[in-house]
Write a protein that binds this DNA or RNA. Structure first.
Lengths: 115, 115
DNA sequence: ACAATAGGCAACCATTTAGTTGCCTGTCAA
DNA sequence: TTGACAGGCAACTAAATGGTTGCCTATTGT
């Protein structure tokens, strides 16, 4: 097995997820894994080549893995980087959830009254 | 209190998080909430105006809230949209974590042997 | 009153991005 | 073996992005 690099550029993952087309592609693979390029093009109002570029970004971010089978190419979802972001980045905001808005509330009150 | 709209364009949140500068700004507010614009500019190798634009995107995505106090502007982190994405989008990939790579493994084996 | 401070706004520029078209290669099936 | 199918690659275009400079307004402190 390939040793998984913990954060193969977290930035690439964030950037890859920034586009709605790419998120739809991931959603599509989530529904049915192992689709070919043409299958993934279904329902997207753009050329095959455009979809290829999006898939290239997803692959660069390690969000999908591909396998060639004969003349077609199968695409597989890799949810690990998403999980990684959830753990390493989102997690810390989760914890501070209540505190953050509390600070704002306190400032608003202090501005008017100082209580 | 303002009724919080569950998903005030999830796309805006993803796009806002796509830039490392904006993630650093959020991290900075996470460390010390309620900073002024000039405070947030500290350590960023760019003009105040550039930072203002980044903060504008973060505010549009509802990731920060601002309060004017005199001539300065205080910025407060709002972690709710991040939480929202974690719950509504990332969550479903978490669940399929094992299945996804399992599919790929099966294809690879099937390609060679069919076991 | 006035200089300094905090910030807003608009125009402009360079780079990146998202998409296109056109053409080429490799595989499969009749 | 040859035509159809799946996909790769490169050049080009339009629009979005990230940054700048220049100037303006409002607040503050002396």
């Amino acid at each position: 097995m390939v040793a998984y690099c913990p954060v193969m550029s977290m930035d690439a993952v964030f950037k890859a997820l920034a586009d709605p087309v790419r998120r739809r592609l991931l959603d599509s693979l989530h529904q049915r894994n192992g689709q070919t390029l043409l299958e993934l093009c279904q329902g997207h109002q753009m050329t095959r080549q455009a979809v290829t570029k999006h898939l290239g970004l997803l692959e660069a971010a390690n969000l999908i893995a591909t396998v060639k089978r004969g003349r077609e190419k199968l695409h597989y979802l890799n949810p690990v980087p998403i999980q990684d972001i959830a753990d390493r980045w989102i997690g810390k905001y989760e914890r501070s959830r209540l505190r953050a808005l509390g600070d704002l509330k306190q400032t608003l009150e202090g501005d008017a009254d100082g209580d």
